[in-house]
Nucleic acid binder design. Sequence first.
DNA 1: TGTCAATATCTGATGTATCAGATTTCAGAG
DNA 2: CTCTGAAATCTGATACATCAGATATTGACA
Lengths: 229, 229
Amino acid sequence: MDGTVARNEQEDRVLLEPIKVRSLREHVHEELRQAIISGRLRTGLKLNERQLASELGTSTSPLKEALRQLEAEGLVRTEPRRGSFVTFSERQAEEMTLARAALESIIARQAAKHASEEAFDQLRSVIEEMRLVVEAGSINELIGLNERFHDAVHEASGCDYLRRLQNAQRTYNHAARKTVLSREDVRRASFLEHEAIMKAIVTRNEDEAERLMREHILLAGKTHIELVF
Amino acid sequence: MDGTVARNEQEDRVLLEPIKVRSLREHVHEELRQAIISGRLRTGLKLNERQLASELGTSTSPLKEALRQLEAEGLVRTEPRRGSFVTFSERQAEEMTLARAALESIIARQAAKHASEEAFDQLRSVIEEMRLVVEAGSINELIGLNERFHDAVHEASGCDYLRRLQNAQRTYNHAARKTVLSREDVRRASFLEHEAIMKAIVTRNEDEAERLMREHILLAGKTHIELVF
DNA sequence: TGTCAATATCTGATGTATCAGATTTCAGAG
DNA sequence: CTCTGAAATCTGATACATCAGATATTGACA
C-alpha cells in the first residue's frame, strides 16, 4: 500500500509542478535585481525606500526585505540610518564571473565525482538537444538549453548549498547568456565546450571537468564584458 | 582648494574610524547565524517569527529582514506562507568548505596578480607576528592573526565583491578556526601553510598561490568536520 | 471506525503609524 | 562673507495592526 502511494506521488510530480506562491517580496526582489543588473538603476544611486515602494505599488515592508536579500547578494550596500545604495560596476561584473567560474568548476568536479548514471543520461540528452538547436533553433531555445545544461550539472553534483549560492547570480548569468549567445561563432564554440564538459563528467575525469568548466565560464564572462562595457 | 579639502578628508580617515551603527536587524542576524552554526538551532527546525522576535525582545520587522539575509546566505530556507526552516548539516558544512576553498583560492590568485608593495608588506608583517605567536602566544591571538592574514589577502586582491561573498561565511569560518586551531600540531602546520601562501603571493606566483590556498582551506575544513561531526 | 468538511487557530505577509538619526536650511553672531 | 547651531525636514528603523493562507481540531455522517 505504501509503495503504491509513494509511486503515485512520484508520478504526480511529473504531471503537476508543485505550486509555488510568489510573494510580493520575491517579485520586488526580482524586479530590483533585474533593474540593477540591466543598468536601469545606476551604481551609487541611493534607493529611497518609500519612493521605491510607492513606485512598485507596495508598502515598505516587502521592499525592505528585498533590499536585505540584494545586500546579501552584493548588489546593494546598506549603511544603517543612512540608506541603501546600488553597487554594480564593470569591476563587479568581472568578479561575479570569477566567482561563478570558481563555484561552477567545483560543482563540475563534484558532478564528475558523485553523479549517478541517470544524471549522466540527463547531461547527454541535453547535449543532444543542443546539437540540433545550435544549427537550426532559435536563440531563446538555446538559452533555455544552456540553463538546463548547467542545472543538470548542478543536479548531478548533489551540492545543494553550492547550487543556492549560484542561484543568487542567476539573473546576472541569464543576462550574460543572452548577450553572449547572440553571436553565432560564440554559439558554436560554446556548444563544443559544453560537449567537452559533459564528456569529462561522464568519464568521471574530475580534473578535466573542473578545468573545462572554469575556462568555459571565464571565456563567456570575458566575452560578455567586452560586448557590454 | 578642492584638492586641499579632499586631502583633509583623506587624512581624517586615517585618524578616525567611521562610526558604525549596528542596527537591531544586524544584531538579530548575527545572533541567529551564530545559533544556527553552533547547533543551538537544529536543522529542520521551524522558525516561528513571533516567538523568535519576542525571545529576542524585538518586533517581527527586524527579525524578518534578518531571516531574508540568512536565506540568501543559505542557512535558512523559506517557503512562502509556510515559514522559515533552519538548513545546516554536515553535508552543508562540507559544501561551505568547498565554496570557501573555491573563492579564497581565486582571491589569492588575484592578490598575487594585482597586489601593491604595501599590501605585500602587510602580508609579511602578519606572518612575522604569527611566527612568534604560534610558539608563545594564546590561541585567541592566533585566531585573530589568522583572520588578519586572510583579510590581508582579501585586501591585497582588491576584489570587493568576492570579499563580500566570503563575508557571509565569516561566522562559520570563525567557528571552524576556533575548533581547528585548538590542536597544537594543526597550529604549526597551519602556520607553515600561511607562510607558503604569503611567499607565493609576494613572488606573484599566481598558480601556486591559488593552489596552496585551496589546499589550505580544504585541509582546515576536513579537520574541522572530523573534529565536530 | 474512518472520512470529510466546517471551523478555530496559528503564523507568515503586508500595510501603516511612529520613532529617531541624518541632512538640509537658514538666520544670526563674529 | 563665513561659520555656527537651531529648527525643519527627510528617511531609515522599528513596532504594531491586520489580512490571508496553512494547519489542526472536532464532530457529524456513512
